[in-house]
């Protein structure tokens, strides 16, 4: 009878102590930085959606580097004995990544809006220059070099317009910068050439009149 009671007590003790030990083990296990990493992924994804990889490249790259560092550290810690793990570094990198991603996303939105506006204005102003070139210099004897530059400028402007319509503002901006250089320098040169022509006009007129007068004497 006594042995029975003893066995029962042992069974009860084991039945209570095993879950208790498990609970204690769970409690003393360092908790993983789950929420922080989830947030880092979310912010990085948001920045990607806002095209931060293109319009805020530096900040976005930094955010990605911090995220990768967090992952590497997390994997490293998980290789250690479960009760000796320390996720402080992971937390730090995850937070830095989230912060940089948010900055990259905000910066990208502002950059996109600004670039869109700048490109639109540049396209309009270059259209005006092209119209002026067509109006004043289409039948003007420009040099072959200037004609070629004007022609390349017009082509780049067209390519910039197409990429702009596709929402590729950075690509469009690069093309516009080249088009602007070719068209404005050509236009300025042509204008200077035309101006010098008219500057000399009174002198030529004088020479013509003098020649006519001289010939009348004969």
């Amino acid at each position: 009878m006594r042995k029975r009671w003893r066995d029962l007590i042992i069974v009860i003790a084991v039945a209570v102590s095993v879950p208790l030990i498990i609970m204690i083990l769970i409690r003393i296990t360092p908790s993983p930085p789950e929420a922080e990493m989830e947030n880092a992924i979310l912010q990085l994804s948001k920045a990607g959606t806002k095209r931060a990889d293109t319009y805020s490249k530096k900040l976005y790259t930094e955010a990605k580097i911090f995220y990768d560092s967090a992952m590497v550290n997390w994997q490293k810690e998980n290789k250690r004995f479960i009760f000796f793990r320390d996720y402080q570094k992971v937390l730090k990198f995850a937070e830095l990544s989230s912060k940089k991603s948010t900055q990259a996303a905000d910066n990208s939105v502002v950059s996109t809006i600004n670039l869109k506006k700048t490109n639109s204005e540049k396209i309009d102003s270059l259209d005006i220059i092209v119209a002026a070139i067509n109006k004043y210099f289409n039948d003007y004897p420009l040099s072959a070099e200037t004609r070629s530059r004007i022609s390349r400028g017009k082509m780049l402007l067209e390519e910039a317009r197409i990429t702009y319509k596709k929402g590729e503002y950075l690509k469009s901006n690069r093309k516009l910068t080249d088009a602007e250089y070719l068209l404005t320098t050509s236009y300025d040169n042509a204008l200077a050439n035309l101006k010098s022509y008219f500057d000399s006009y009174p002198l030529w007129k004088k020479w013509v009149n003098a020649t006519i007068k001289e010939s009348e004497k004969w």
């Binding site: 296990t29 908790s31 992924i41 990607g48 959606t49 997390w74 994997q75 810690e77 479960i82």
Partner: peptide
């Protein structure tokens, strides 16, 4: 857009794996 979504999913899976690895 579709490719970015797949990449994001994989990132989430890698994190979820580490979460499980961190647990008892």
């Amino acid at each position: 857009a579709e490719f970015a979504a797949v990449q994001d999913s994989m990132k989430a899976i890698n994190a979820a794996i580490e979460v499980q690895k961190s647990k008892l």
